[in-house]
Nucleic acid binder design. Structure first.
Length: 292
DNA sequence: AACGATCGCAACCGCGGTGGG
DNA sequence: ACCCACCGCGGTTGCGATCGT
């Protein structure tokens, strides 16, 4: 068998480096035939002499039909910059808000274009800012400087009235890679996952439902926290009165509420990879949101 | 035309989280 | 409680393409 040189100088029988067209088509056929299977089974089923990681990466970053190629639109770039301010280098989270774009694409695009653009913008507004990269709330979390408030899981009752009579769109049962998935075991509950996204109808009592962030109501949150400066630095997310800081999920939720970005919210909630489905609970857990 | 510098992006690596046995 | 396999993620590298001199 042909041997390939690994980085540590040892030889490996697994192929590395650029993928050939033949390998691509084998992987594509395998994914089309078997759908979402364990990545460790992919190399054998596809007849590829590649490690599972390599296969996974190739599919998720390049071959998946849902991937949008070509240049980033201005609005996409703008969204990336704003989300990066909010989330830092959490590329997968950012990618989750940009349909068709992979975390790797976004990371590469950021490193080659947007980081400079973002710094230039910052400088324009605040010339004192020195190009040292963008701030992240992570170190502050670690230092324990703030109490991080995470939203509590939001549970949607199966018989919740606003879920009823909504059309079901199968395309919403797709994971991030665009592969059709059936994330829940067959049960009447499944239908609600699809219905949720399609609910252009905002529930009348939306505010009442969406309050479970540290036991506060949305009204209280909006009174207690400065949320007008979303996209600013960590300090701007700080509680007015005490040293508390909103988690990114909570900020996003408030952002959504303030900005009526309901579409984004539902996009987040329904673009759920199969691995997020807890087998024990038979529910989806996503960004602090639980769907029964 | 030649060649070095820079860019863009695919691919790899290693770490941390998770779940099953 | 522990170990191990698996997976996803972010950081980094490698290399072909393009640009500038």
């Amino acid at each position: 068998m042909e041997k390939f040189m690994a980085k540590d100088g040892k030889t490996s029988s697994l192929r590395r480096g650029a993928w050939s067209e033949e390998e691509d088509s084998r992987l594509r056929r395998c994914m089309e035939k078997y759908g979402v299977i364990k990545w460790c089974d992919v190399p054998s089923k596809a007849g590829l002499n590649r490690c599972r990681k390599s296969c996974r990466l190739r599919w998720l970053n390049y071959l998946s039909p849902s991937i949008k190629r070509g240049r980033f639109e201005d609005d996409e770039e703008d969204l990336i910059i704003r989300l990066h301010k909010l989330l830092g280098n959490r590329w997968s989270l950012i990618a989750g808000r940009l349909p068709g774009r992979t975390a790797n694409d976004i990371k590469n695009h950021w490193n080659t274009h947007l980081s400079k653009k973002s710094i230039a913008k910052e400088k324009l507004w605040n010339p004192k800012i020195i190009a040292k990269g963008t701030p992240s709330i992570k170190p502050r979390e670690k230092k324990g400087e703030f109490k991080i408030i995470k939203p509590q899981p939001w549970t949607i009752p199966v018989n919740w009235s606003w879920l009823k009579d909504q059309p079901v769109h199968q395309e919403h049962l797709q994971d991030k890679s665009g592969v059709n998935v059936n994330p829940l075991p067959p049960s009447p509950n499944n239908i609600n996952v699809a219905r949720k996204k399609s609910a252009a109808v905002i529930p009348e009592k939306f505010d009442d439902v969406f309050l479970d962030i540290d036991g506060m109501t949305v009204g209280e949150m909006q009174t207690n926290f400065e949320v007008g400066n979303i996209g600013g630095h960590g300090d701007e997310w700080q509680d007015k009165s005490s040293k508390r800081c909103l988690s990114e999920e909570a900020i996003l939720q408030l952002l959504i509420l303030n900005d009526t970005r309901v579409f984004f919210f539902f996009g987040m909630a329904t673009r759920v990879a199969p691995e997020r489905v807890s087998k024990k609970q038979s529910c989806i857990n996503y960004n602090g949101l639980t769907i029964l």
